[in-house]
Design a protein around this nucleic acid. Sequence first.
RNA 1: GCGAGAGUGGCGGAAUUGGUAAACGCACUGGACUUAGGAUCCAGCGGAAUAUUCCUUAAGAGUUCGAGUCUCUUCUCUCGUACCA
Length: 835
Amino acid sequence: MALPSRYDAESIELKWQQYWADNNSFHCEIDKSRPKYYVLEMFPYPSGNIHMGHVRNYSIGDVVARFRRMQGYNVLHPMGWDAFGLPAENAAIKHNIHPGAWTYSNIDNMRSQLKRLGYSYDWRREVATCHPKYYKWEQEFFLKWLEKGLVYRKKAPQNWCPTCHTVLANEQVEDGKCWRCDSVVEQKELTQWFLKITDYADELLADLKKLEGGWPDRVLSMQNNWIGKSVGAEAAFKLENGKGEIKIFTTRPDTIFGVTFMTLAPEHPIVDSLISGVENEAEIRAFITKTRNMDRIARQSDSLEKEGIFTGSYCINPFTGEKVPVWLGNFVLAEYGTGAVMAVPAHDQRDFEFAKKYHIPMKAVISADGKEIDPADFECAYTEPGIMINSGEFSGTPNEEGKAKIIEALEKNGFGKKTVNFRLRDWNISRQRYWGAPIPVVYCEECGMVPVKQEDLPVLLPLDVKTHEDGRSPLPTFEAFVNTTCPKCGRPAKRETDTMDTFVESSWYFARYTDARNEDAPFSEDALSYFMPVDQYIGGVEHAILHLLYARFFTKVLRDFGYLPKNIDEPFSNLLTQGMVLKDGSKMSKSKGNVVDPTEMIAKYGADTVRLFCLFAAPPERDFDWSEAGIEGSFRFLQRVWRLFHEIRANIFAMKPCSSAKEQADSEAGKAMRLREHATVKKVSDDIGNRYQFNTAIAAIMELVNEMYGLKDELAKSENGKALLSSAMATVIALLSPITPHICEEFWQDLGLEGMACAQPWPEYKEEALQKDVLTVVIQINGKLRGKIDIPASASKEEVEKLAAAEPSVQKHLEGLTIRKIIVIPQKLVNIVAN
RNA sequence: GCGAGAGUGGCGGAAUUGGUAAACGCACUGGACUUAGGAUCCAGCGGAAUAUUCCUUAAGAGUUCGAGUCUCUUCUCUCGUACCA
């Protein structure tokens, strides 16, 4: 019988996609009689078209979802759109269309592209964050937080992107540049809205422990670094003139007797009063201006020349009573610690270099053995542990103990206290852009800042605006929006025209999916307590800090405000960070012209092949290079399965569903077939379910198919053989079904079987079927491979030793040697130690 | 500097508890079938020598009967972070 050399992927795929849609195959409802499994991929920004990175991300997620569904879980697998943001606005300006129109048409296009890939989403739960029914709830959260002080307004120097015309959060500045457009970020003093993420710094850090094992180490370590906790002490140094004090933060309180100068950030608030009227005031002011005018990159670069200037003032070391000169330093950051550093040049490398440069004396207060040492002999600062010296009553104490003792003394005398400092800063969530969720407050001349009443939500983003060509927000000049009345006094008032950072929307969408159509509340207790947390979250590692930190923060906040159940501390139990899809060794980009369009690949090979290749090319966390030859290989494999299926069916026998779990083999070929089938089920279940190694799962299925090709003619000779071959084929369909679902449905239908392939129970293996009668045992002499023998599985240790020694190739190598020892690893190998 | 991860054929990658290194696939070579094949099938495919060996998992040492896997030292690459007091 003639077989088609190429199966017609497109018609099969469209048919089954329609079938799944018509039959609501992937709808998910709360069902407390079944365990839930929530699998989620990071939702896309509707930029226009899906790219290979999306295909890889969503294919991984779909395998997990379909696998868990077949295992009997009630799987929640939703999809939506991170739809507010700058690109929509910029595209709108460029093409002279409204950002909303652009966004919604992109969503329509991308939704159909995703549907063409056969992903098993419950589309009823789809959300678009730019929809008022979504952002309404975010505005409600905002009001609640404002009431409790979790969100506040502050005037401070901010990261300003001159190209995007907006401020950025610290997390959105990479290398001093805007994360989106790469422009150099400037500092600008502005009044902005902040979310107090620092209130949660401790919990965000501590709970990283709960994620160990479920999240990749490197993501945990990145978050850990970003939060940047350092434990130390705060101490006050009184000014010599009695007009106030300087507070410092140090992680080395044990060196406080060694302070020989003080360094302040030029921006430190006390500086002005210190220097007014001093002889060289003009010179000092010039230094301050010069430093402040530097951009952030130059100021924080490695090559910055450390410079300072003496203020003319002194403060007093609270422990020694010594006069300490107060300097300004261009490397001291106003925003970290207290903006003032106690300098101990003998024990800190940076202070050491500064002291050398400006000829400031040094004082050693720690030495390796507790003996006196002269810092004049130092080539670099002594930063090792040791014994305290020249430290009054603390001399002779090991310095680590000394830290606690000094802090104790600080607290006792009221000079200071133990403190913890974080690198993490509060999250600036206001943006001076149009396409975002409006911040629901108004400003009244009488009442000041007044929150919008909850019953007046949502504050709608007006859609009938004209966008400015230079990207500035049209809201401040759009009178119909700006002009309103004060919710308190009813007099005319002006609306806040800043919108919220789009990372706010993506910080809670996963919870909204549990109850996406709820119009009375953002979520319901019932849905949250059943579905949350997300069991498996999948996305790119570029969100390791930004989105993943914000989402963790939001989860804790929503929990504390009673929106999320008390026992939900973390949103994502397990995180898989998938690698990028490259072409010719670099990231696909339009400018490089190396973009592979998923739509074209689907048209050429079909969705099943594209899915298969994305999963087979590399383990998920690694980057992989797209190759046309590689996808051909995946397509060939599916054709091979196609031919195998039809050959078996047409030329050998009519297949019926059966299970080799019950059937025993009565021939060598049958035994081999049955063993391979069960071994493959075991391997694939482990690879998909536990190890997330889809590439090796697919390799194992390929081996099973290869074995079926090798054995099919032999097996066709007996009824038992046919049954075993039939069972193996059914297993291949089941194992492939999460990966290449369409072709598997087609096979299933061709078998005339009930239901859908994707709704079948996941195959199980039997330990008994994995047992071999004859085992190949490796023989080593002194650890080197010298032979292999086949022995009955039942052979005793002595028999194995005897058989091994009798092997001719082994005897040859043993000539002239004396056997010292024989190590037998049952069922695996024999190592003969001889010399 | 600090933190994390990685280094295996021509290529992507396997080797899960220390136990046959290179599974699976790509590329390549030879053969079969064929009017033809860029289809399909069979065989080969780490290196050197070739009938028997030797070498090989970035380099070196160690532990072990046995190391890609464990320990130490060094090198290289990727990512994050950085005058953080």
